[in-house]
Structure formats: C-alpha cells, structure tokens
Design a protein around this nucleic acid. Structure first.
Length: 805
RNA sequence: GCCGAAGUGGUGGAAUUGGUCAGACACGCCGGCCUCAAAAGCCGGUGGCCUUCGGGCCGUGUGGGUUCGAGUCCCACCUUCGGCACCA
C-alpha cells in the first residue's frame, strides 16, 4: 500500500460524497417507518473564518450524524449562515467594504473550510439569513406577530450603545456593557419595536419540563433571567395628592414593618412632589443619569419628599423618600421599605436615621432588630403585627394578602425580571422591518404580496445614531398601503437574533417560495433531536428561539411548543490559559492544521482532547499525535492486506477485544454522549492488533477498527474500507457487538483481605458466592493474612472477594 | 452576597451503578533498535518515597465522616471558572 496521503484521499472522498449525494435527505423520507434524527449545530456568523470552536462544534455533530445514519435513521443535517447583523457589519466597516460584499466573501471562505473538513452536510438546504429568499419570510413572520399583538412599538427608556450607535436588547447588555463591543451602555428614551416575550414568561419556565435533555446550568440561567417572583401588590395612599401608589413585595408578611416608602428617581410622581420640595427634581435628574455601576454601589443616596404615605395595614403615616436604590424597571418603581428585614432598606434606614421595627422572629425566639435579619419565612412567626402576630410567617403572608384583597388594598401578584425583547436596531445590515408609517393610518404593515421589503442600497451605511436606511429617501417615501396617501417606511432593521429565531424551521423546507415552511414538514422534523452550540447563547438565542416557537405554535403555524429536545454545549478551547482570540494572538488556524496533517487528524484530535462539554487547553502536539494514530491504523490495514483472511470473527482474544470495542464505542456515543473515550478505545484495539499478528480474527478486528473510526475520520476510513474490498462505509450499518463475545469464560478474581488486594486468580466465570469465597480462602497468600480466623466475606460476582477479619 | 460547575502524574485526560493494587488512551520526557547522521518508525520505561529488587508504604484540593471497601456518597473549608446581583 502507498503511504498515507491525507490530502489526496480527502479530496477524493469529498468528491465521491458529493457525486453520490451521500448526505442529502429528502424532506419527506420515503420510508415512513424510518426513524428521523434532526441533528443541528448553531449556524456560524460569517464575520470571519471558522475557528477551533466551530471545528469542535461541527465535528461533534458530524459524529452524531454519521452514527445515526448508519443506525438507519433519516438524518437531517443542514448548514447555513447567520449573515445579517452587527458582527458582519462591523467586520465590513473595519475592512472598508460593503457589508454584503464582505459577508459574501466570508461565506465563500467558510463554505470552503466546511467542505475541507468533510462534514456530512446536506448542501441542498444551505441558507443565508441575509438573502431576500430568506428574509422575506422573516418579515412575513414579523407581521404575523405584529397582527397578533406580539410585536409593538413604544417609547421607553432603552439601552443605547454609543459605539455601535444602536439600541440593544436587555439580553445584550452584560455588566452594563455592550455584548458586542464592550462599551458602556447608556439609557435613552426612544420609540422602539419590541416583541412581547413577557407574555410567555410562565410558559418559558413551565415548558422546561417538555425538554428531553438540556444542561441544568442553561435552564438555571434562563430561570434567573426570567426572574419570576411571587408576592403581592399593595396600595399605599398619599392623601396630600389623592393618589394610591402600588408597590410590589415578595414579603407581604412584613407589611407591619414598613417604616418608610421609597420611589425610584424616574417615578412619575416625583414631579408632583416638586412643589413642596423643589430640590427633588435636581436630585432625581442626577440620580437617573448615573451610570449603572455607580447606582449599584453601596452608598445609597436619597432625599425626603416632604410627603407621607399611609401603611394600609396599620394606618401609620410613613415618610416618602426618593432614592436611587429603587429601580423604575422592576416591580412598580416604588417600594415599601422594611428595614428590619431587608438589607438594602436597613442600610438606608441606618444612613438616614429612620425607624426600624422587627415584625418577624424565629419561632424559637431571637432575631436582632439592630441587624437586617433577613427573614426566610419557613420557621418563623410574625411579631408586632397586630391581629396577625403569632402566626407562622407563610400563613401570615396568606392572611395579610387576603385581608388586603377584602378591602381592595392589594392582591396577590407575580413579578418578572424579564423585559420585552427590544428588536429594532438603528443599523444598516439587517432585515428591514416591513411597515409603513402613515400620518392618517398609523403603523401599516406592508402587504404580504409586496414582501420582501428589500434592503436598499445606500452610499453611507456607517452607524450615525439613526438608521442609515433613513438616507435612502426614494426608498423611504412610499404610498400608504392602506389609504394610498403619503407614507414613510420604517427605517430600523431587526436584531440578528430575529433571523436566527426560526432558521431551524426553514431548513426543513428551504426553497419554499409560498410560505416560510410547510407545516407538515416542520411537524415531521421538529423538534430538533440534538442541538449543539456554545454556552454563550444560553439566554439570548435559546430563549428567543423558544419564544418564537411558542408564538408560532399559538398562531397555528407549527405543531410543537419547544424547538430543541436535547441541547448540548461544547466547551471552550483555551490556549496559553485564555480563550483563543485574535486580540490575544493565541489563535490556532484550522486551515494550517488541515494543511499539515489533514482534516481527519484535526477531527480526531479535537474530540480526543477531552470531554466535549468541558473547557480544555489546546496542546500544540495534539494533532500530530492524532495523525500518528491514523498512520498506525493505515499500517495495520496494510499489514492485514498482506495476509490471507481467515473469516474468523469470534472466539479469539482479538475477536473479543473487537466486540468489546464495538460495545464501548456505541455506548459512549449513543447513551453517554461522550466522544473522547471512543477514540481511546479504538486506539487500544489498533495497538492490540499490532501486537497479535497471528490472531485468526485479525481481519475482523481491522475492519471493526476502520468501521468504528469512520464517524471521526471519514476520509481515511472510507479509503481503508475500499482497500479491504468493500464500498460505501458511510452507508454500512453500524456494527453490533456479539453479546456472547463480551462474556469471558475466565475472569480474574481479585481477592482482598481487609480491603487490601492480596492475590488475584483466574477462575471460571459465573461461579456462586460461596464457591468464590471458598476458593479465595484456600489461596496461600490469603491464608497468610487470615491467621486462621474465620472472615466475613463480601463478594462482587465475577470480580472481587473481600475477606474481613 | 446568591446559584451552578469543577479541582486526579510533567501535560490533556480515564475510571459508566461505591468494588480488580487509581492513572486507560495520548502528549512530553528517558533508554534502546534502525541510520554514516538525522528525521520518521519500532521496542521498552515513566505518580511519589523506601527497597535486601521479593516487595513495602504513601497518593485523586484540605480536614472530618459513612462503609468490609470512597476519586466516586455525606459534612465543613480552600481554590478556580461560569451565571445572576440594590429585582423589593
């Protein structure tokens, strides 16, 4: 056999697969009894080229896909590009090209990289979100949500990135900074488009039970983000203004401890206090303008308003303060302050010398009013609480809420941290929002038959604080679809995350030009059986996609409520202790490695490195090691071809090893979803083959090794499979281990005395406990430790006997 | 502060349900073969300490516990990473 030349064979087999349409899947699989598997990896942003994270992500999906195919499943495995949006646009600005040109060039490069890696993708389903054929349907879906009242426009304080010159969704603000560029985010009051994701808060929580397998940490992150908390809304009366002001509290049982009342600086009532306390306006303006981090500092500031509110449960007049530690965005923007039982209220009361009244105490006494005793309400009772004193806290909570409800002073309610999804962006490179503003008719959707609203060409697409589309005056001016009068197009574009909230549906029916997808097709393929991607989308993409799916379900467009049954997050790859990034200069280029060692070696190493879900350190010599293994496999096959095959597949040590390897690899990939140890198992088998040249089952063992490595290293596997006289390994049924070959006739029995191994002995498998004990006790080495005493015995059949004296 | 994950040789990691002296499989390193030499390849060794070379003792972040038996279970602590954080 010739030497192993990865480049030649990789080119050759990629060509063969393409010509054979090997990985194309009909949308309606002909044989309906075939089980389906939709294997999906998060699609790449074409803002640069593929990096090691992609290599891991897509190789992982490839292994799953190959094994499922060879198990007889109809496998859908598409690929596309998340082509609109800030990453691609910023790349274009950096390089000085047009976003479309830069995006298309990047897509071409990425497509080339994907092909060189030999991933088994159905290329007939390739999708790019920036193509009119795709975004036409993004617009169509937007209008469906608009008609259902789920997309709306309103003026609100929004997060603004001064660098990217656009508004951001709450989910895109990390520690007060822009998720993309890291600039500090400002708050501006602007009219923007939002999706009513808050309507789905409860279902986003409850339907987690419908998910087959998602990482617990992702679910936790989504739960935290939605931030559901149950409590009560309570009305506090301000007699001087004739106003009832609602507050939200999770602890209505502490109502008797409310000794003051606090409004957020942005609260609309603050203006009305100004008559009596003019300096409030100045304070409120300053506080509201503070940066997010400053406001979250420990030094609470505040100002007494000069007004009082009535605590509804005891009629007490308590002072109203305005303070920056209360946020307008959460609850009602006003709180009842219970300094005895809330650390923040406590700190504020101490600073401004406000009264502190303890109203909850541990059932066994104690509790110190001089510290903010944070009540937990499991084993506590109410004190200083009028008729409710002495009740256990949970009951007190219920009774006080009932009391308030009876008098129209409050009600049980639920509050959420989740805000509506702000989807409009003042940027060029995105999907145009398909509505027209008309002075007479208001917001008018562009009629379905006029979609897509094409993204106009503009001279200057740089961000300027208003959408660059506004400069395309001819495009903006349009007649109103409703009254025919003068109208102006919406010039904002959509957040990229809108594009990626439904792409997994489009893949099932990518060329449909009458609808975004056929209901029967999405219902057949979805939910995605295995979704694979990075943890960075734990909240953003994954929550948006869940929301979209539920909204489309409610609209009758799809028949399922969750898009992704199983989710897997691959770990990040580090080098020199840091995440690979261009700015740190620690990037390893996949292209270079493919050039040096071939795609198969890179594929094997990226999965051999360690558990796929763990963060891992890149090893410089790793790919070389994988390449050596493939060469060893190559040589082992070459040696085998010089022999005359015996046809023996059972009974010999090598046959047993091969069957054990089949069992191990299958179990690891299919049940445990573990991808590194199967490679180690095949390495062991290959080592074993080299050591046992005379074994009659060597042909079987060699073929098994080739067959098992195919999902990882499909090119060399295919080449060797051919050399062994077969063809089309990618369609060959996945090997089955013969159970009889997994059982051993002789086992090595470990004999321990007092928990320490003292001897081991070959015995027949399947012996009873008594026989094993008797056998163990006869061993001379064991007797030396027993000193003639009668031991207690612990037996693990076919494994171990522990004798204890 | 709260929530979550993780700590195993020089390195990446393995040990699936508590059960074969923990360290598979690799990387690296050491020795040997081959070679004029090198590379590649092949063979052997490689947790620590002690050793009369038979073996002995110790060892999975730290300290305790449960158990005949613990990397694996429980408690406390330390460290690292991730998420959330004036959320009322």
């Amino acid at each position: 056999m010739d030497a192993y030349d990865p480049h030649a064979i990789e080119r050759k087999w990629q060509q063969v697969w393409q010509e054979a349409a090997a990985f194309e899947t009909p949308s309606h699989p002909e044989t309906t009894d075939r089980r389906k598997a939709y294997v999906l990896e998060m699609l790449p942003y074409p803002s640069g080229e593929l990096h090691m994270g992609h290599v891991l992500n897509y190789t992982l999906g490839d292994v799953v896909s190959h094994v499922r195919r060879r198990r007889g499943y109809a496998v859908l495995r598409p690929m596309g590009y998340d082509a609109f949006g800030l990453p691609a646009e910023n790349a274009a600005i950096r390089e000085g090209g047009h976003p479309r040109a830069v995006t298309e060039r990047n897509i071409a490069a990425i497509r080339e990289q994907i092909k060189r890696m030999g991933w088994s993708i159905d290329w007939t389903r390739e999708v790019s979100t920036a193509e009119p054929e795709y975004y036409r349907w993004t617009q169509w879906l937007f209008l469906k949500l608009f008609d259902a009242g789920l997309a709306y426009r309103k003026a609100a304080p929004v997060k603004w990135c001064p660098n990217d010159q656009t508004v951001l969704a709450n989910e895109q603000v990390i520690d007060g900074r822009c998720e993309r560029c890291g600039w500090e985010v400002e708050v501006r009051n602007l009219e923007q488009w939002l999706f009513k994701i808050t309507d789905y808060a409860d279902r986003l929580l409850e339907d987690m039970s419908l998910l087959e397998s998602w990482p617990e940490r992702v679910l936790t992150m989504q739960r935290n983000w939605i931030g559901r908390s149950e409590g009560a809304e309570v009305l506090f009366r301000i007699e001087e203004l004739d106003e009832d002001v609602p507050v939200f509290t999770t602890r209505p049982d502490t109502l008797f401890g409310a000794t003051f009342f606090v409004l957020a600086p942005e609260h609309p009532l603050v203006e009305r206090f100004a008559g009596r306390t003019p300096e409030l306006l100045d304070y409120a303006r300053h506080a509201a303008a503070k940066k997010i981090e400053e406001r979250a500092s420990d030094d609470k500031t505040g100002l007494f308003s000069g007004y009082h509110a009535i605590n509804p449960v005891n009629g007490e007049r308590i002072p109203i303060w305005v303070a920056d530690y209360v946020l307008m965005e959460y609850g009602t923007g006003a709180i009842m302050a219970v300094p005895a039982h809330d650390e923040r209220d406590f700190a504020f009361a101490k600073r401004f010398d406000l009264p502190i009244v303890q109203v909850v105490a541990p059932a066994d006494g104690g509790g110190d009013p001089e510290t903010a005793y944070v009540a937990h309400s499991d084993n506590e009772v109410l004190v200083n609480s009028g008729e409710f004193s002495g009740l256990p806290a949970p009951e007190g909570k219920r009774r006080i809420v009932e009391w308030l409800e009876d008098r129209g002073l409050g009600r049980a309610t639920t509050s959420y941290r989740l805000r509506d999804w702000l989807l409009s962006r003042q940027r060029y490179w995105g999907c145009p929002i398909p509505v027209v503003h008309c002075e007479r008719c208001g917001i008018v959707p562009v009629p379905e038959e006029e979609l897509p609203v094409l993204l106009p060409e503009v001279e200057d697409y740089l961000p300027k604080g208003r959408s660059p589309l506004a400069a395309a005056e001819d495009w903006v001016r349009v007649s109103c679809p409703s009254c025919g009068g003068e109208g102006r197009r919406e010039t904002d574009t959509m957040d990229t995350f809108v594009d990626s909230s439904w792409y997994f549906l489009r893949y099932t029916d990518p060329h449909n030009d009458a609808a975004p997808f056929d209901r029967a097709l999405v219902d057949y393929w979805l939910p995605v059986n295995q979704y694979i991607g990075g943890i960075e989308h734990a909240i953003l993409h994954l929550m948006y996609a869940r929301f979209f799916t539920k909204a489309l379900y409610d609209l009758g467009l799809v028949g399922f409520e969750e898009p992704f049954a199983r989710l897997f997050n691959q770990g990040m790859i580090y080098r020199f202790g840091a995440k690979m990034s261009k700015s740190k200069g620690n990037v390893v280029s996949p292209d270079e490695l493919v050039e040096r060692f071939g795609a198969d070696a890179l594929r094997v190493y990226i999965l051999f490195m360690g558990p796929a879900d763990a963060d891992k350190e890149w090893q410089e010599t790793g790919v070389e090691g994988a390449s050596r293994f493939l060469q060893r496999l190559w040589r082992v096959v070459g040696n085998e071809l010089d022999r005359t095959p015996t046809g023996v597949a059972t009974g010999t040590p090598l046959a047993r090893k091969a069957h054990a390897t089949i069992a191990k690899v299958s179990d690891d990939i299919e049940r445990r979803f573990v991808f590194n140890t199967p490679i180690a198992a095949v390495m062991e088998l290959v080592n074993e083959i080299s050591r046992s040249a005379d074994d009659d089952a060597s042909r079987f063992a060699v073929e098994t090794a080739v067959s098992l490595i195919q999902p990882y290293a499909p090119h060399i596997a295919e080449e060797l499979w051919s050399a062994l006289g077969h063809s089309r390994l990618w369609r060959e049924p996945w090997p089955e281990a013969d159970p009889s070959q997994l059982e051993r006739e002789l086992i090595e029995l470990v004999v321990q005395v007092n928990g320490k191994v003292r001897d081991r002995v070959q015995v027949q498998a399947g012996l009873g406990k008594d026989e094993l004990v008797a056998l163990a006790k006869r061993l001379p080495k064991v007797q030396a430790y027993l000193n003639g005493q009668e031991p207690r015995a612990y037996v693990v059949p076919d494994k171990l006997v522990n004798l204890v004296v």
